Computed example of a mutant assay.
Amino acid sequence: MLNKYKGCLLGAVLGDALGMPGETTVSRFIGVTLGFKRAYKGHPNHDLLPGQYTDDSQIMLAAARLLADASWDPETYAKDLLRTHNLNKFRYPDGTIYAACKRMQTTNDFIGSGVYSDSAGCISLAVPFALAYKDRKEMAPKLLEACSITHTHPGAHAATIGLALMLNTLIETGSPDDAYQALITAAQNMNPDLAARISNAVRIEKTGMQITESLAAIGNSSSVYHTLPLAIFLCNRFKDPEELLACASSCGGNADTITLICGAYLGAHRGIEALPQDLIAGLERRGEFETLAEKLQNPKKPEPKKSEEKSEKKSEKKPAQEPESIYDSGWEPE
């Protein structure tokens, strides 16, 4: 089971880093090769090194740390996002997250600054929540709470919760059919339009349509109505791990998030052994993500409330040192 936990989390980060240079570009499927690359000069991510991840994994890491330590709190998460925004440490942030942070900055409202947007900027939150909660009924409202910090659109909520349920089911049962059913049921209940688009992507895949025509029919933009259906199409089409990751990272548009979803799916289904080990070795903060996966499998229990006397004594202690910024690792490729 731990191999699947590590596979899901590291697969997501790996996919993000692979898709990073292809974000906002056109799709290129001819001569596709798998490997970390640098974005072209002038690209918003051109300062990132091969093997570094984008804002998708940044917010995933922020949530994973809180969940692993049993200290999840939506306001703490929101303040972490705002602090990073103020430090200008976000790596080409999703426009919706940027807008939400600007609202927090001007209103000082950390919970009510979400934006009505169907972008896929919060969908990576599905990964740490899928790993941290074994009780799906407990997970769903907590994940909805997390998404709403930045995204208030029902499509964004349905996509994120549906993906979390799919990954959670895949880890538990090992059945892609059961996992897909969990996703489509959540989408049907929360946002029928998203469910229809996912079903259409699966239908297109079954026809055997070429990937270029399929991409044109499904879409590859940053909207969850394109990002999630296209990722599901790719996971159904390509069974070889390297072929799946190579094609996902070459699809342009929202390539980083699309490949993140494919990597998480691959790792949840087949474990960390299914991921390209040479690429895992060159992944930014690989060790920390592995440690977090272990913690998420058995997260800490919330500490019982202490008496007022103990609380007062505790308050006299020096404040704990802030952890290293999740957005500026000083990492260099090996």
Rank of each mutant, 00 (worst) to 15 (best):
G22V: 00
N88F: 02
R286A: 07
D178F: 10
F110Q: 06
D118W: 04
T259H: 01
A187C: 15
E290S: 10
T227A: 12
G19I: 07
Y265W: 14
I59H: 11
I149N: 08
R285K: 04
A201G: 01
T152Y: 03
T173W: 12
G19T: 02
S57K: 06
A159T: 11
I280C: 09
L215S: 13
I258R: 00
D94Y: 09
P241H: 04
A146G: 12
K318Y: 14
D55S: 03
G114P: 15
K37Y: 02
G219I: 01
C147H: 09
I171N: 04
S329M: 05
P74M: 02
T84E: 10
E334C: 12
S325V: 14
G253R: 02
L292K: 08
S117Y: 03
K317V: 11
E213Y: 09
T150G: 04
L125S: 08
R197C: 07
P50I: 00
L81E: 04
I123T: 15
T291Q: 09
L194G: 05
D177H: 14
K295A: 13
M166E: 13
P192N: 00
W331Q: 00
N298S: 12
S71Q: 12
I30D: 15
A159S: 12
G263S: 02
N45D: 05
E309Q: 14
I211V: 15
H43N: 01
V224T: 03
A17I: 03
T54V: 00
T96E: 00
T150P: 07
C262E: 01
A120W: 00
T259D: 01
C247N: 06
E23T: 13
E290V: 13
L279H: 02
A201I: 04
K301I: 06
G95S: 05
A164H: 11
E242I: 01
D178I: 10
D177A: 15
G51M: 01
A182K: 07
I204W: 00
Y5M: 06
A39F: 02
K305L: 13
V32K: 11
Y116A: 05
R136L: 15
T227G: 03
L245Q: 00
E172C: 04
G15F: 08
S214D: 05
L275S: 14
